[in-house]
């Protein structure tokens, strides 16, 4: 089982779906952010799995995964700083309460 690419990919797919669900269903901005992190991790798992099981992609996989990791870190930084800024204004982390603009 651990020698099967399919198993890893399906696992990544499940994680991606969990993240998607969290993003669509949660109301809290930080929860949504965490869901996105899960999705990005699913991507990384996919990449690593390809790297491990397809000889031509071997080293590339690890490198791309590292890059994705760094991008995720940058995104988290930006997202959390926005969350903090908005919390100063609105005192609530619930996204669907940010509806001042809808008439």
């Amino acid at each position: 089982m651990s020698h099967s690419l399919d198993a890893y990919l399906i696992l990544a797919g499940i994680l991606f779906s969990i993240g998607t669900f969290g993003f669509l269903a949660r109301r809290n901005a930080i929860s949504m952010l965490m869901s996105i992190e899960l999705m990005l991790n699913a991507v990384n798992l996919t990449i690593i799995a390809f790297g491990a099981f397809i000889p031509t992609l071997k080293v590339q996989g690890s490198v791309i995964a590292l890059i994705v990791l760094a991008v995720a870190a940058a995104e988290a930084t930006v997202g959390l700083s926005i969350v903090i800024a908005i919390y100063r204004n609105r005192k609530t982390p619930l996204v669907d309460e940010y509806d001042t603009m809808r008439d």
Partner: peptide, 18 residues
Amino acid sequence: LVFQTQALPAAIAAAVLG
């Protein structure tokens, strides 16, 4: 207040996606 009102459709969509 954890979930949106449309949590169930989201769950179904995610399951289908998976």
